[in-house]
Structures are given as structure tokens and as C-alpha cells.
Amino acid sequence: MDQPYEDVPPATAPPGSIMPGHGPAADSQAHWDGFGDAQFGMDDEQVKLVWTGELVGSAEQGSSCYHLSPAGQTDISRFAMMFEDGSFVRYSVADADIVAPGGGKRGMDTAQIDALYPGKVTSSAHKYVPEGQYLRVEEGGGPHVLVFETDAAGTVTEWRVGSPPQVDYVEGCS
């Protein structure tokens, strides 16, 4: 018999808590090691094989760095995957509907990011936005980094995940 002899109450969590693996962050395609089935280190052909839909973009003549984005996207900054020297090394997001690993997203403020990643956020001045910041979060025990960019009011405008040094390139491939 594989059933208990007595009634066992269901597992419970404190009110307002989210069980690991559940909630908005768990539903996101964003991961520390890639996006969806596209994993860092894959070449563009491997990424295209696992991606649902068409990806557009290509390297310019003489360049080893380029971006691929979903076809039909009206703004490349909404979502882009960076490739350098033939490998997927970073993805960038400026869409409030896509949730970063750990739960951060566009529209949150600095205090919310600090609360989601307690003791893991280091900040530095934004290169182009006066009073803006870069909020850098290192993957616990892993090689990847998450960088949130904020405006002067401390609100996240975009974020990216990837391998150093590419995740820290302020101007993408430029």
C-alpha cells in the first residue's frame, strides 16, 4: 500500500509567498545560461534550430559581433541576442513583459531590484544617462551576469544577461 494510514494535511507556505519554480519568474524564458532553449555558447545555426519562429540579423563585413532578433519585431531593443566570434554570448531585453532570472523586469525601481537580489547588486554610474545606473548582479556560483539599466529616477529601462566581458558592453556590438 502506497497511501498513508491517516490523513496528511497539504504542504503550506506563508501567505503571500511563492513556491520555488512558480510565479511570473518561473514562467519566463530568461535564464542565467541563455533564453528558452538557446544556450550561451551555441552558434547562430544551433540557436536558429531551437528557436520558435524566424530570427533576423547578420554580421557586417569584417565584424565578429552581431545581433539576431525575432522577425517582425518593430524595435530591435525589445529583444536581441548577441553573438561574438560565432557564439551566443548575451541577450538584451527592453520589454516589460519579459522577466529576468530572479524576477527583475523593466519598470521596477532600484529598491525592488535590491529586494529581489539581496546583497548581490553592485551599482555604477550610467555612461549616457545622467543620474542613471547600471545594477550588476552576478550569477551565484556561475559565470554569467545580469545587468539592469536605470533612468535618472531609478527605474529599470532595460536589462541584459550574458558572459563577461560582452554583458558589460554599453553599446552592444558598437
Score class of each variant (00 low, 15 high):
residue 167 V to L: 15
residue 112 Q to H: 04
residue 32 W to D: 07
residue 116 L to P: 05
residue 67 H to M: 04
residue 74 T to E: 07
residue 31 H to Q: 15
residue 11 A to L: 14
residue 21 G to N: 02
residue 13 A to T: 03
residue 123 S to A: 15
residue 106 R to K: 06
residue 129 V to F: 01
residue 63 S to R: 01
residue 160 R to W: 06
residue 69 S to M: 06
residue 132 G to V: 02
residue 118 P to R: 06
residue 161 V to F: 11
residue 72 G to F: 08
residue 143 P to Q: 10
residue 154 G to A: 09
residue 112 Q to N: 03
residue 153 A to R: 10
residue 105 K to V: 01
residue 49 L to A: 15
residue 148 F to I: 07
residue 168 D to I: 09
residue 104 G to N: 07
residue 10 P to I: 06
residue 168 D to S: 12
residue 55 L to A: 01
residue 120 K to Y: 06
residue 133 Q to N: 14
residue 71 A to P: 08
residue 80 A to G: 07
residue 14 P to Q: 13
residue 13 A to F: 09
residue 173 C to H: 11
residue 41 G to Y: 02
residue 118 P to E: 08
residue 85 D to F: 02
residue 44 D to A: 13
residue 48 K to A: 14
residue 55 L to E: 00
residue 108 M to E: 12
residue 29 Q to K: 10
residue 14 P to K: 07
residue 134 Y to I: 02
residue 69 S to Y: 07
residue 10 P to L: 12
residue 78 R to W: 05
residue 63 S to H: 13
residue 165 P to G: 05
residue 100 A to N: 10
residue 136 R to T: 12
residue 83 F to A: 00
residue 84 E to R: 00
residue 124 S to M: 15
residue 137 V to W: 08
residue 171 E to Q: 06
residue 156 V to Q: 01
residue 84 E to C: 02
residue 150 T to I: 08
residue 143 P to G: 03
residue 95 D to E: 15
residue 146 L to N: 12
residue 17 S to H: 01
residue 110 T to N: 04
residue 62 G to L: 00
residue 120 K to W: 08
residue 3 Q to M: 11
residue 106 R to E: 09
